[in-house]
Design a protein around this nucleic acid. Structure first.
Lengths: 136, 136
DNA sequence: ACTAATCGCTAAGCAGCTTAGCTACTAAGT
DNA sequence: ACTTAGTAGCTAAGCTGCTTAGCGATTAGT
């Protein structure tokens, strides 16, 4: 399945391009991506991003300096923080992701329901295959 | 198309895992990958990897030190080198890629020809979409 | 109440990248 | 043929984002 490799290669290249275009590191973009889904603590973020908590502190520092996220006190645990994405951060991420999402949506709409189901099944399978290789 | 994002995320994670597992950087793995296809000069490699020629020198240094590639004189142009992957390098790459290729092949064989065609068409489309976003 | 674990952070060090600039060589212009 | 401009690979210096180690503050477990 050469097409999968090609897609992944292109996706990796795109990540780099978006990183340069936005002036954020790939890790920072990934962090924003997670935070848009839901707020999380620095240590949870570290786990999600697969980096050390020390690195996570730096990521939050840089995003905060740009106004893309803010540190809030955790409501119950005074050791913790909750990192929330700001409207600015949300807009920034969307601004860079929109063209891609748009292109994918268009591609999606050109498929019949049957085709869509086939494709999704394949993509999930490939994802599972990757995950299996990781954990072995 | 959430499934595409999920696949890409997993693929990126897998690249990291393979990098750690092999003790090579992702760039070095990419370099090996290109060199297995065909030998190339350091500057060409730099272009393929999207890094500076200075970085490319370092990549070749490290791969050479491990015995995965070798520097050969270019037959006609005495300024150039030709970087060739060694049997050792080929084996090393294959060793880490085989499980993934195996899993993907298996997945591939579970599809009917019609499905396969649908999937390939989609993957190519997605790849083109990514490329389009890059160049804009 | 005391011990152990967890949270976020700082400090120090490292690896891989960048740009700038060098020498050797080739290509192009006259 | 000779000079000029361009290209190839490399080194040097510096930056960035990561790592591990370890700290003080807070919470959880016994």
């Amino acid at each position: 399945m050469i097409a999968v490799r090609a897609l992944v290669t292109e996706a990796v290249a795109l990540r780099r391009t978006l990183s340069r275009r936005s002036g954020l590191t790939e890790t920072e973009l990934d962090a924003l991506d997670h935070l848009v889904e839901s707020p999380s603590t620095p240590s949870e973020l570290a786990r999600l991003l697969d980096v050390s908590t020390a690195a996570s502190t730096g990521v939050v520092d840089r995003l905060e300096r740009r106004g893309h996220v803010e540190r809030r006190k955790h409501p119950t645990d005074r050791r913790r923080l909750e990192i929330h994405v700001t409207d600015d951060g949300r807009a920034e991420l969307l601004r860079h992701l929109t063209p891609m999402l748009h292109a994918l949506t268009e591609l999606d709409q050109r498929m019949t329901p049957d085709e869509r189901e086939t494709v999704i099944r394949f993509l999930s399978g490939a994802q599972a295959a990757f995950r299996a290789v990781e954990g072995s």
